[in-house]
Computed example of a mutant assay.
Amino acid sequence: MNQDRVDGNWKQVKGKLKEQWGKLTDDDLDVIAGRRDQLLGRIQERHGLARDEAQRQLETFSRQNPEIFFERS
């Protein structure tokens, strides 16, 4: 996925991410900016989840929202 597509999609994605993980702040989402590894770390931090649980939730979210693209690290 090229970064232009991630960037263009990102504004639409923010709302869905906040619905799923309500403790994520606008500042968190600005820092994340479409990067999967950053999102995973913020989910862990804000929601007090172990890495494997945060990763499971993110995979489920990605399957349920295939129109959302993340840059893989």
Rank of each mutant, 00 (worst) to 15 (best):
G34P: 01
V6P: 03
A50S: 08
D7A: 10
D28I: 00
R35V: 10
I68K: 00
K14M: 12
T60W: 06
R46F: 02
G15K: 12
N9F: 13
G34A: 04
K14V: 15
E59F: 00
T25R: 09
E45S: 12
G41N: 08
D52S: 13
A50Q: 06
I32T: 07
G48K: 06
Q38K: 11
E53S: 13
D4Y: 14
K18L: 12
E71W: 12
L29W: 03
K16T: 14
D4G: 12
D37I: 03
Q55T: 15
E67Q: 14
R56S: 08
I43A: 05
V6R: 12
D26W: 05
E67T: 11
W10G: 04
R35K: 09
Q55K: 15
R51D: 14
Q55L: 13
R42W: 01
Q20N: 09
S62Y: 02
N65M: 11
A33P: 08
Q20V: 09
Q57S: 04
P66I: 03
V6N: 11
V6K: 10
V31M: 09
R36Y: 15
K18S: 11
G48S: 06
R51P: 05
A33Y: 08
S62T: 15
A33R: 09
L17F: 07
L17E: 00
D4N: 15
A33F: 10
R63D: 07
N9K: 10
R36K: 15
G22A: 10
T25Q: 04
R36G: 00
A54D: 01
I68W: 01
R46W: 04
L24C: 07
D28M: 05
D28Q: 04
R63W: 03
N65V: 00
R63L: 08
P66L: 04
F70V: 00
T60K: 14
N9V: 07
P66A: 08
D7G: 05
D4T: 12
I32K: 08
K18V: 06
S62A: 14
L24F: 04
V31S: 09
N65W: 01
G34Y: 09
K11Q: 14
N65Q: 09
R63K: 12
F70C: 01
D37Y: 08
T25K: 13
R46G: 02
G48M: 03
V31D: 12
G48R: 03
L49W: 14
Q12I: 07
D37C: 00
R36C: 09
R46Y: 00
S62K: 03
E67V: 01
G34D: 03
T25Y: 10
F70K: 02
D27C: 08
K11C: 05
D28F: 03
Q64W: 01
L29G: 03
D37K: 12
R46M: 04
E71A: 14
Q44Y: 10
F61Y: 15
K11N: 12
F61T: 07
R46K: 15
K11L: 13
L40Q: 11
I32N: 05
E53W: 05
A50K: 09
S62W: 00
S62R: 02
